[in-house]
């Protein structure tokens, strides 16, 4: 039964992530990414980590992808334009993705030479995660937080129009 569910959602994750890359319409790509992340959340639950699964849905599908959709609709990108001229960009992206994936696999196999501690349910429970995140990995956690804060401030500054005193203000939002 569990194997069946695993197979179903693993296939769904792989299939929908292919759609994300291949589909021409960005809204459909985003919606397939929703399916991908939902399937991965189900896989987390099957692995005995319901907390991480719930967070996956809450943060990624519930918030980040909605913002993706928001931006796509705000810019009104209906279809990917002139896919031919972007082939170089796509090839570069594919190469970078392959490199990152290869690097991750290499690290995985390098570490797998000697036996590792098994991923116990205690480690992926709420308490275990909190202990790791706010204990051993507190500094990286805070650095990531600072990085995100800097990114938010940077985005706000970049999005802000420079003040133009000689022009009367007309196009302000009501």
């Amino acid at each position: 039964m569990e194997t069946l569910i695993f197979l179903l959602f693993a296939l769904l994750a792989v299939g929908s992530s292919l759609v994300v890359v291949v589909h021409k319409n960005p809204v459909y790509s985003t919606m397939s990414l929703v399916v991908t992340l939902f399937s991965v959340a189900v896989l987390f639950v099957l692995l005995g980590a319901p907390f991480i699964g719930a967070l996956q849905i809450l943060i990624y599908t519930g918030a980040i992808l909605v913002l993706f959709l928001f931006v796509i609709m705000l810019l009104n990108v209906t279809r990917e334009e002139s896919a031919v001229s972007q082939q170089k960009v796509q090839a570069g992206g594919a190469l970078l993705g392959a490199l990152v994936f290869g690097g991750m696999l290499a690290v995985l196999f390098w570490n797998a030479r000697r036996p590792m501690d098994p991923m116990t349910e205690e480690l992926v429970s709420m308490k275990g995660l909190a202990r790791e995140m706010f204990g051993q990995y507190l500094l990286p956690f805070e650095i990531v937080g600072m990085l995100l804060l800097v990114a938010v401030i940077g985005a706000t500054v970049a999005a802000r129009k420079p003040p133009q005193p000689d022009k009367p203000v007309e196009d302000l939002e009501p």
Partner: peptide, 9 residues
């Protein structure tokens, strides 16, 4: 969390 996650959909 499950409630909040599913409601956010």
């Amino acid at each position: 969390l499950l409630f909040l996650a599913l409601a956010s959909l």
